[in-house]
């Protein structure tokens, strides 16, 4: 079994080498597809991340308390808030805690906060909503409670962000699916040429009693190897691109959305696996389609 797999792989490399031009062209084409695909993946992942951040930040009602409101009074408010419909949870956030959160969210830019001599943030109660729709009523009620200075609830903004994000996600998915299909077509075309170039050989192999696996193995591996090489090259290139992108756009993104881009280390380790799996699948699908179609019996 291992021996015949090795034989197939060796034959696959031989065939790829014999057909250098076509092999190179298809690797080039699939790498290009995967690079474009990676850009959309980056976009999609970051939009998703941004949306989640926005949801967490603004899918809540912040009830800012007057400085003279005591912790005990706040605890009482929390109890009454929790009894309302549409409230999932309510927690007390002291001004110190709020500052810590700020620093974390600002990440590399947190040094900007060091200039402050005194904490300007108020104590607050953070209400997490189980239902975004009841937010308005709750927010209006909270504003009337004694000891509350201000209430902040960004319902429309959150809705808009979620909607835009959905559109972008869906668009990216369509583009990605499209690119994957094109890649499969490219591989299957290459394998089709292999089948045709080897038609004579295949006929003879059948006469001599070669098993199907013996005949198909090399072509199957040829597709997979092409997919894997393309995946490896595009993982390398797209990682470089993303690191640069973070450098160039990171600050912009922060200024606009007050959140970082998804960290390159995290994204790249994931992309390695995604792309290898994708490369293998594209190669395997391409080969199988062509063998089904052009390899009789």
């Amino acid at each position: 079994m291992i021996k015949s797999a090795l034989y197939s792989i060796k034959q696959a490399f031989k065939q790829m080498f014999r057909n250098k031009g076509m092999t190179f062209a298809s690797i080039f084409a699939i790498t290009a597809m995967m690079l474009i695909l990676s850009l959309f993946l980056f976009l999609s992942v970051n939009v998703e991340y941004l949306t989640e951040t926005v949801k967490n930040q603004f899918g809540t009602i912040e009830v800012f308390l007057l400085d003279e409101t005591s912790k005990d009074q706040a605890e009482n408010m929390i109890v009454s808030f929790k009894e309302m419909d549409g409230v999932e949870d309510a927690v007390y956030v002291s001004k110190e805690q709020a500052m810590e959160e700020f620093k974390i969210r600002w990440g590399d830019n947190a040094y900007l906060l060091n200039g402050l001599t005194e904490n300007p943030l108020p104590n607050a109660i953070r209400i997490t909503l189980s239902d975004l729709n009841s937010g308005d009523i709750i927010a209006r009620f909270c504003a009337t409670v004694q000891g509350v200075e201000d209430v902040r609830f960004y319902r429309d903004e959150v809705g808009k962000v979620v909607r835009i994000s959905n559109i972008i996600q869906r668009g990216a998915l369509v583009v990605i699916a499209f690119l994957v299909i094109i890649s499969i077509v490219v591989v299957s075309n290459t394998i089709k040429l292999t089948v045709m170039a080897r038609e004579n050989e295949i006929t003879i192999m059948k006469y001599i009693g070669a098993t199907n696996w013996f005949i198909r193995g090399p072509m199957f591996f040829e597709g997979i190897i092409i997919g894997l090489i393309s995946a490896a090259v595009s993982v390398g290139l797209s990682s470089l691109i993303y690191v640069r992108l973070c450098k160039v756009l990171g600050d912009q993104a922060f200024r606009l959305f007050s959140t970082q881009l998804v960290m390159p280390q995290f994204l790249i380790t994931n992309i390695v696996w995604i792309f290898l799996a994708l490369g293998i699948s594209i190669g395997a699908c391409g080969s199988i389609i062509s063998m089904r179609r052009y390899l009789k019996a």
Partner: peptide
Amino acid sequence: REIPIHRRDIGMVFQDFKLL
């Protein structure tokens, strides 16, 4: 799946040789 095994029991020679 048995066809290849069957064919190994049969040597085939043709008018046009069918060499690679």
